[in-house]
Amino acid sequence: MSSDLLEQKSPPVPRVITTKPRFTDKVFRAVVTSGGMVSLVLLGLIGFFLIYNGFEAIQNAGLSFLTGFDWADAIPEIDQPAMYGVGAMLFGTIVTGILAMLFGVPIAVGTALFLSYYAPEWLKKPMVVVVDVMAAIPSIVYGLWGFFVLMPHAEYWAKLIHKYLSFIPIFDMPAPVFTRSPFIAGLVLAIMIMPIITAISREVFAQTPPERIQAAYALGATKWSMIKAVVFPYGRGGVVGGAMLGLGRALGETVAVYTVLNLVYDIRIEILLSSGGNVASMIVNKFGEADFVELQALMAAGFVLFIVTLIVNFIANFIINKTARE
């Protein structure tokens, strides 16, 4: 009997302790990792297929694909080769993008400040919803609204600006056509990018250390002195990053710009004139009747747009991430 007891008390064989993942975990990790790589692969494939299909167009045109501002099919009768250059459209894209930033950024940052420091509690929530809803509205809605509702007003504003400020070259008018101008496209784009800039600025402002805000108030600062001394230095990176994110959206916008902008293959600095450009809307505009050669050029234009927006987004996200981490 005693031997039985002894036998029972002998310690069980210890479990092998290992950090090696089990088979199911290996499968799990493999599946999740390959799923996570899809975005990387997709992004690479987008670039690859666009340049693969557009390479010939870029090769034929060389550097003039970026600088040339003609978009003309070949005319065999007079031996004129096809000339495809996105220069004018690229210039127009940048002009409308800058205008959108000029109109949109101050208002968006002001709204972010309002939501963070000025708004009474009862107004805060509905305002945040308003900004979120604006971000969710499809661009075609902005396009139609811009064309049918905003344009009559904006045309009048443009006429006033021209009347009183025409001595400044960019407000000059060679021909009195005020509709579908870069000015109006800039206004519509500004309204479209305001929500994202507001959201990011607000996020950054919310991270301002409250003890520094209290310290500023304790030293007798007014609200504005506090914002100038604490909030802006702290959140500057976020505001810049948010603005660039908005710029990226504005550069790539297609449908809204197509409806409110008159595409003309020309470089003009008169922003009130009905003549402008935008690479994305040009692609939609030319896509329908494009032959194979022109299609290649459109693919190349898409590649240029892809790279430009990617770079802007990279820089924007880099700045935002850096600000958020500090």
């Binding site: 990387l40 992004l43 666009l50 661009s139 990226g248 790539g252 459109l298 747009l305 892809f306 991430n321």
Partner: peptide, 19 residues
Amino acid sequence: VRFFVQAMSGVPSIVAGLF
């Protein structure tokens, strides 16, 4: 991956269509 997904959300919709 995180960084590229962030960048991907800025890809213009027309580029996705072209791709």
